[in-house]
Design a protein around this nucleic acid. Sequence first.
RNA 1: GCUCCGGUAGUGUAGCUCGGCCAAUCAUUUGGGACUCUCACUCCCAAGACUGGGGUUCAAAUCCCCACCGGAGCACCA
Length: 489
Amino acid sequence: MAPELIEKLHEKREKERRLPELDVTDGVVMRIAPNPNGPSTLGIARGIIINHEYARMYNGKFILRFDDTDPKIKRPMLEAYAWYEEDCEWLGAKPDEIVIASDRVDRYYEYAEKLIKMGKAYVCFCAQKVFKRLKDSKKACPHREQSAEGNLESWKKMLAGEYDEGGAVLRIKTDIKHKDPALRDWVAFRIIKTAHPRVGDKYQVWPMLDFESAIEDHLLGITHIIRGKDLMDSEKRQKFMYEYLGWEYPKTSHWGRIKIHEFGKLSTSGMKKAIEKGLYEGWDDPRLPTIRSFRRRGIQPDAIRNFMIDLGVSGTDIAVSMDTLYAENRKRIDPMANRYFFVHDPVRLTIKNAPPTVAKAPLHPNIDRGVRKIFVQGDVFVCKEDVERMKRGEILRLKDLYNIKITSLKPLKAEYMGNDLSIIRKGAIIHWAPVDGVKVEVLAPDREYKGIGEEGIKSEPDNVVQFERFGFVKIDSVNDVIRVYFAHK
RNA sequence: GCUCCGGUAGUGUAGCUCGGCCAAUCAUUUGGGACUCUCACUCCCAAGACUGGGGUUCAAAUCCCCACCGGAGCACCA
């Protein structure tokens, strides 16, 4: 192909990977604002990657902000703060700034007071159900008419801890008759007496996401917000505040629901429960869609990044398959992964008349990195799956070793048949493991595989390798038993 | 019930702003083939879509209306 044509192809491919342009007037400041009530998941990685990518595209700023303002229901996890930083960095999205909401509660109080004084917020003592009934019929509650002074006094009492949990909330006045019920006089602060994992019992009055996020986005100078469409109404609620305070709302766009075939609908809290019950080994269990898990399985950050950028930012609800991510990952790890034999559910195969042989198998089929030498004298292990397909009298090739003829199935026996490569045909080559091989356990999303591998696997801790005819894996730990995490086919 | 958003091949996506160059892009997937001592990689070939109905127009995936389908919000969660 002509070089200029190849050039053109590359150009085209580059274009695919780009996100749609942003409407930029004056710089770009993006943020990802998770609640650290668990580690980052694939869903949050989308937010991290897309927002960071936009900041990068426009030489802007990328901020990681922890919206950890609920010490009770979605209680933050102390370790998760550092995990988020780690995961962002690993994904190639190192934040330029990190902000923690629970450090800045006093500021939120200041703005609350300001809004109360402006007559744009009021302390509401209605029971939740009572208010809902009023709101649904477009009726104001009696507390809405309280004077600014009266509200200020109640607010101070709230802060002083004079009310019980659920006894009072601060509401932002919007339009109680607004046609959209989701926008009518929303809650900005509520009382929570549970201690916060970071700041303890310093505060008993906590802002709701809509309030905290509204203030922070302004203070941090966020120019563009890109997030899930579940937060669409949040924008409409916050815009009332922005108008009262004379601020300009960032430009926004929202993407749809993302569902991953292979993982179903696992929420952070759902995963937490399952881990506590012992169903999973931990947050980085390979069966969980957390970034920590992907990292442990040998999924490359670039693969995740391209995958996310390819998904784009459309408002459509999408259901994606991990196959696409795996294909992306395979392209990256195939050149670097050395090849080894691993036999799961091993069956001992006795070979008659075989001369002692040193098998020489290439570490990589396309790149010359030398060979692995495996000494074999007579017997080897083969996969139960392969045994089940064997027929008596069949001639097979033990890959990189020699040929055999199956002479018996019940006790599995074979006969040495020389080394003639011309017998090789599709489906007649199987892999094997030496009888003195190492014990290997592979933890895969669907099951755990136990078996025997060749000695050389020991020399690859933390590396991604390919177990031939099995799949790509990452060597997790090397002890008496080698622990391995399965990546994909 | 009220409010909002969206519907391009199996899956995701480009095209829609400013209608014609769209018999619709790219990737993945699936099928076939080549190569190969892996069911991996690479390469080649093929398959497969504008939700439906009206309207505007010389011309509609693109603009307008209706219908249908999907999703989100209406929390003292984020």
